[in-house]
Simulated scan of single mutants.
Amino acid sequence: MTGQSFDWMGRRIPFRTGESLAAALEAAGILTFGPDTLGQETRYFCGIGACQCCLLRVDGVVREACITPARAGMQVEALERRHD
């Protein structure tokens, strides 16, 4: 580990240089990424950006977690907040 991290919903997530957001989240034990705009759970699935199952909001912009390289200081969150 290089000591780098990004913020996931208020939690610091460490990552290795070159690792995607999805890989870093999975390594941290986060297997679902919250609901999409239709209320369906988002998650890491195809790993190549084709399925759009891992959409997240990264520094305010919607991105595919599986093809977005992790960078120190990123603010990463679910597309939608849960309304439980």
Rank of each mutant, 00 (worst) to 15 (best):
I13F: 08
A65T: 06
A28D: 14
A22E: 09
M1R: 01
R12H: 04
M9W: 01
C54W: 04
A72W: 04
E41V: 06
W8T: 04
L31G: 12
T68W: 07
C51I: 15
D84R: 08
E77K: 10
G34K: 03
Q52Y: 08
W8K: 03
Y44K: 09
I48Q: 14
T37L: 03
C46S: 13
S5K: 09
A23S: 13
S20P: 09
G29L: 11
R71F: 01
T17C: 07
Q4A: 14
L31T: 10
R82D: 08
T32K: 05
I13P: 00
E41Y: 05
A65P: 07
R11N: 11
C66P: 07
E64S: 13
D84W: 02
L21V: 14
G34D: 11
A50C: 11
A78H: 03
R82G: 11
I30M: 08
L38M: 15
R82C: 05
E64R: 13
R82E: 15
E26G: 02
L25P: 00
L55G: 15
G10N: 01
A23Y: 02
A27L: 00
C66N: 13
Q75S: 11
Q40F: 15
Q52L: 08
I13V: 14
R81A: 14
G39A: 11
F6K: 04
G73H: 01
R16A: 07
G10H: 09
W8P: 08
I67C: 11
D84L: 07
A70T: 01
R63D: 05
C66G: 12
F45W: 13
V62T: 15
T2D: 03
C66V: 14
P69A: 13
G47T: 15
I67H: 02
G29R: 02
E80L: 00
T68H: 08
G49Y: 00
G60I: 07
E19L: 09
P14I: 00
L38V: 12
G73N: 01
A28N: 04
T37Q: 12
S20K: 00
R12D: 10
W8H: 03
Q40M: 14
H83E: 14
T32W: 09
T68F: 06
D59E: 13
F33D: 04
V62G: 05
D7S: 08
R71A: 13
R43Y: 15
G18P: 09
R12G: 05
L21S: 01
D7I: 07
